[in-house]
Design a protein around this nucleic acid. Structure first.
Length: 286
DNA sequence: CAAGAATCCTGAATGC
DNA sequence: TGCATTCAGGATTCTT
């Protein structure tokens, strides 16, 4: 599932590819993406004739600027669970579940492939795109200057919610998903089910540092590929080998050899080390 | 207001 | 072997 490091890796591969405009054609499959999502108004035909500009990322969203005679448009793309955004030659076979193809004058095309169709997209004037949900609801960028423990504490310091769910809330911090939430909690030595209001100042500091640290490592490893994720050139990431807890329930902890414990909360799985991530400071009596 | 459940979807994994 | 069932999960919307 693409989270901040994966989406940023995709962004970088598109920036390196430097697709040259203008857009010559837009193709859309017959199947809808994520119905029941108010912002998912595709309006893709507005991109025809537009010239590609800066490609940005906000949380797990890509925002690609396109210049037209009538002003600047933004193409908002979310990869959902199984989405891929790839650069391809027109004469190569389209993967199954290809739902959007945008062709550029230089002969290449951008393809959006999403088997589960949990992804979404929208084209709108750029100011409007940033002013409305989902972008307007996002919390701070964890890898930007200014992100620190105060951001987390302000947003969730009084919440009774479990830490794992606080980290998944895009209003608290943008771009963290289930993999990196669990990894950050391991790194910070905090139990994923601990209510947020119980954290001490030092624990908030550890957590903020851990979020930055696991995202940075994920990014330098080119993202985590558990199943579907690929970068813009179709390549898998390498961060799956660096995971400490996510997907490792029943295996032993890399640091202490305790057996990693799996759990489910709100329909979403997670995992933690029972030795490193205790609910309280009290040590268990052997 | 907050927290939990339901919703969307398909392929992989499991069950019989 | 083959068919049916279960499950996973991001973000939103609906309930409680």
């Amino acid at each position: 599932m693409p989270e901040l490091p994966e989406v940023e890796t995709v962004r970088r591969s598109f920036v390196r590819a430097r697709l040259q405009g203008p857009v010559t054609a837009v193709w859309r499959s017959a199947k809808a993406l994520r119905t029941g999502n108010a912002w998912n108004q595709e309006n893709l035909q507005a991109l025809e004739g537009a010239r590609p500009g800066k490609l940005q990322r906000r949380g797990k969203f890509l925002v690609w600027r396109f210049d037209t005679d009538a002003g600047t448009l933004g193409w908002l793309v979310h990869l959902g669970m199984s989405g891929r955004f790839v650069i391809a030659r027109p004469d190569t076979q389209r993967e199954p579940h290809t739902h959007v193809v945008v062709s550029f004058e230089d002969g290449r095309e951008a393809r959006f492939v999403d088997p589960r169709r949990f992804g979404g997209m929208r084209v709108a004037p750029i100011e409007q795109l940033f002013a409305e949900p989902p972008l307007s609801d996002l919390g701070p960028e964890p890898l930007a200057r200014g992100f620190d423990m105060a951001c987390l504490e302000r947003a969730a310091g009084k919440s009774k919610r479990a830490l794992r769910d606080v980290l998944l809330d895009q209003r608290v911090v943008a771009g963290v998903g289930n993999i990196y939430a669990n990894e950050a909690l391991f790194e910070a030595r905090l139990h994923p089910l601990l209510p947020a209001y119980r954290l001490s100042e030092s624990a908030w500091l550890r957590l903020a540092d851990a979020v930055v640290s696991v995202l940075t490592r994920g990014l330098s490893n080119g993202g985590t590929t558990l199943r579907d994720y690929r970068d813009g050139n179709g390549r898998a990431g390498r961060n799956q080998d660096a995971l400490n807890v996510y997907g490792r329930a029943g295996e032993s902890c890399h640091d202490c050899s305790a057996v990693i414990v799996g759990f489910t909360l709100g329909g979403r799985g997670g995992a933690f080390c029972p030795e490193h991530q205790r609910r309280s400071r009290a040590r268990r009596v052997p």
